[in-house]
């Protein structure tokens, strides 16, 4: 790895760290219903929403009402998203005259965007109208992100409050998140992206004369290329900030109209981890103990830093089989070297590897390089980060509430060691919380592994795979892991078919909500519990020791549940490669 690679990585994480405190403090003010600057220009809109929806903002909900409001809201979003795709052929803003999306693909896409997964089994520019992209997908980008953040805030209230049964109002949390956090940040980022060349237009496709004529598969001369455009920048901004990841174009952030320059690449990469990282600080502020937030942020960073050098080194080293053929893959003054298959030259090895780690550490899923073309160990890293449960930064809201489930497991393990009832931030962790945390942690490996096992056992699954052997297995394992953990990135090489559309749709849906419901149940259980005063027997949860315990718990659970499957995929592929 060159020193420039290290400098780029350090600058990235340095800027990210610098943004954590101001944004985290601001978000805490939004959630504490304190006055924020944006309430002056936007407060009327917030009040209008409440009045139109018949919501009384002071009416708080118990956890069951909160959970059912969340589910009902998401159900309406799912049906709307399904219908808009199916009916796009007769709806306006369809300059390319696209027909309605096929039912199985529409249900997959609806489940995917509803849950912040943004798994894409379609090519955006060749399948979806501007209306579907804007009013269907981009709207869900906002709402799914806001849903995740609302669930997190409800859990924080459960941990902080000492009495009562309520954990806030889902409608208020959803509205304030969208209006005061996601919309302003997206607007700023979208304008910057447009200034750099990301397109934003309602025009239909643009024709461009080819420099060299070619011919199609029927031998007919082709002299013109069709270049797709559309309202891209507005969608890309929230796609990154909301850890959604669904691109306007099929090539996602490798496409020059989504991510044209090194600056857009840096800003989009920053946007991926910005809110998940800042929410740790929000957590500390709302809890009244910032150290609790910092230790969780440190745990997230530690999990990423453990594997980031591996992906950069694996990609920079290049393919040994090509070296044997005399291909020069060394880093030199004339060449960036390394494995450049599936990567954009303008981003190179480091920015492709860093993006791959960031997008899979967060449950973003956008890509600026094709993970399928990474070296086996390079591909191992994104897969591993997804398999940790999207808790190393993770999705907006969902990453932190996922990590808090591991915190509960960690304090339980520590409690077993010393023979005391486990506590976290003064709240006793009892049988109910452990049952709920267990459901939350076990559901994603269950969905990913059973799903992948089923897919490799049936013809509909294996026939969709583009590569034979261990790499093909990795493609299926990656797809199910990505969907179960609501990441949404694809290893590529897997073709869509009705079986995978439906199977992955189910996995996506349960991966989100079967995890979210127990989290809210824990919030409801904890909210009424008194805070136990700190004593000499209390396990401090803000120390480096707890950091090690937490990281160890995440690694052990991740390693033990997924390692056999990983051994059959990228590990075997690496061994075969070096054995040749």
């Amino acid at each position: 790895m060159s020193y420039l690679s290290v400098v780029q990585i350090l600058i990235y994480f340095g800027v990210l760290l610098a943004a954590v405190q101001p944004l985290g403090a601001y978000m805490a003010r939004v959630y504490e219903n304190e006055r924020v600057l944006l309430e002056k220009p936007l407060g009327w809109l917030e009040r209008l929403f409440y009045r139109a929806a018949g919501v009384r903002p002071d009416d708080e909900m118990d956890w069951k009402t909160y959970a059912k409001s969340m589910l009902l809201f998401n159900l309406m979003g799912a049906v709307f998203l399904y219908l808009i795709q199916r009916l796009q052929g007769v709806l306006p803003l369809n300059p390319q005259k696209f027909a309605g999306v096929a039912p199985d693909l529409a249900v997959n896409t609806a489940a995917s965007f509803l849950t912040n997964t943004n798994w894409q089994f379609y090519g955006g520019e060749s399948t979806l109208s501007h209306l579907t992209q804007m009013f269907g997908l981009a709207v869900q980008n906002f709402l799914s992100a806001a849903t995740g953040m609302a669930i997190l805030v409800a859990l924080i209230r459960g941990l902080r409050r000492k009495s009562g049964k309520t954990i806030g109002s889902f409608w208020v949390d959803l509205t304030r998140t969208t209006l005061y956090i996601l919309l302003p940040l997206s607007l700023v980022l979208a304008v910057i992206l447009v200034s750099q060349g990301v397109v934003q237009t309602f025009r239909r496709d643009v024709g461009a004369a080819l420099l060299q004529a070619t011919h199609d598969d029927k031998g007919k001369d082709v002299t013109e290329q069709t270049i797709s455009v559309g309202p891209v920048a507005s969608q890309i901004a929230i796609k990154q900030l909301g850890t959604n990841g669904g691109g306007f174009f099929n090539a996602n952030s490798a496409h020059p109209f989504e991510n044209p320059t090194p600056l857009t690449n840096f800003l989009e990469m920053l946007a991926i981890l910005l809110i998940p990282a800042a929410l740790c600080y929000t957590y500390g502020v709302m809890l009244g103990d910032r150290r609790q937030g910092w230790v969780l942020l440190a745990a997230m960073a530690a999990l990423v830093f453990m594997v980031l050098p591996l992906v950069v080194a694996a990609e920079q080293a290049g393919n040994p089989l090509l070296s044997k053929l005399g291909v020069d893959q060394r880093l030199s003054t004339l060449s960036a070297g390394g494995n450049m298959e599936g990567k954009e030259v303008r981003f190179g090895i480091v920015n492709s590897s860093l993006w791959a780690a960031a997008t899979t550490a967060a449950s973003n899923g956008s890509v600026n390089a094709m993970h399928d073309s990474f070296m086996p160990l390079g591909g191992f890293v994104p897969l591993w980060l997804i398999m940790l449960g999207e808790v190393a930064f993770g999705g907006v809201g969902s990453g932190l509430y996922g990590l808090l489930m591991y915190v509960i497991i960690a304090v339980f393990i520590a409690g077993l060691m010393v023979g005391r009832t486990p506590e976290y931030v003064g709240k006793k962790i009892e049988a109910f919380e452990m049952k709920m945390a267990s459901i939350a942690i076990l559901i994603t490996p269950l969905l990913a592994l059973v799903g992948a096992a089923t897919a490799v056992s049936v013809h509909a699954g294996t026939s969709a795979v583009g590569n034979p052997g261990a790499h093909g297995f990795s493609e299926i394992l990656y797809a199910f892991s990505s969907c179960a953990n609501n990441n949404g990135s694809a290893f590529a090489g897997l073709s869509a078919n009705p079986f995978l559309n439906i199977a992955l749709g189910i996995v996506i849906l349960f991966g989100r909500f079967v995890l979210a419901v127990p989290v809210l149940a824990i919030a409801g259980s904890l909210v009424g519990k008194n805070i136990v005063p700190t004593s000499s027997g209390t396990l401090p949860t803000h120390t480096p020791l707890f950091l090690v315990l937490l990281v160890g718990t995440v690694l052990l659970v991740g390693a033990l549940t997924y390692f056999p499957a990983l051994a059959l995929g990228p590990v075997v592929e690496h061994l075969i490669m070096i054995g040749r």
């Binding site: 069951k64 959970a67 059912k68 589910l71 998401n74 159900l75 799912a78 049906v79 399904y82 199916r86 039912p103 199985d104 529409a106 249900v107 609806a110 489940a111 109910f432 049952k435 709920m436 439906i502 749709g505 189910i506 849906l509 349960f510 909500f513 079967v514 419901v517 127990p518 809210l520 149940a521 409801g524 259980s525």
Partner: peptide, 30 residues
């Protein structure tokens, strides 16, 4: 027909999660 089936799948999926809310509530009491 296919559309009805697909919408039913979405409603059914989220409906199961709705039941999970009640199951978790029941677990809390027992």
């Amino acid at each position: 027909m296919m559309d009805l089936l697909m919408v039913a799948a979405l409603v059914g999926g989220l409906g199961l999660c709705w039941l999970l809310v009640d199951f978790c509530g029941w677990t809390a009491k027992h």
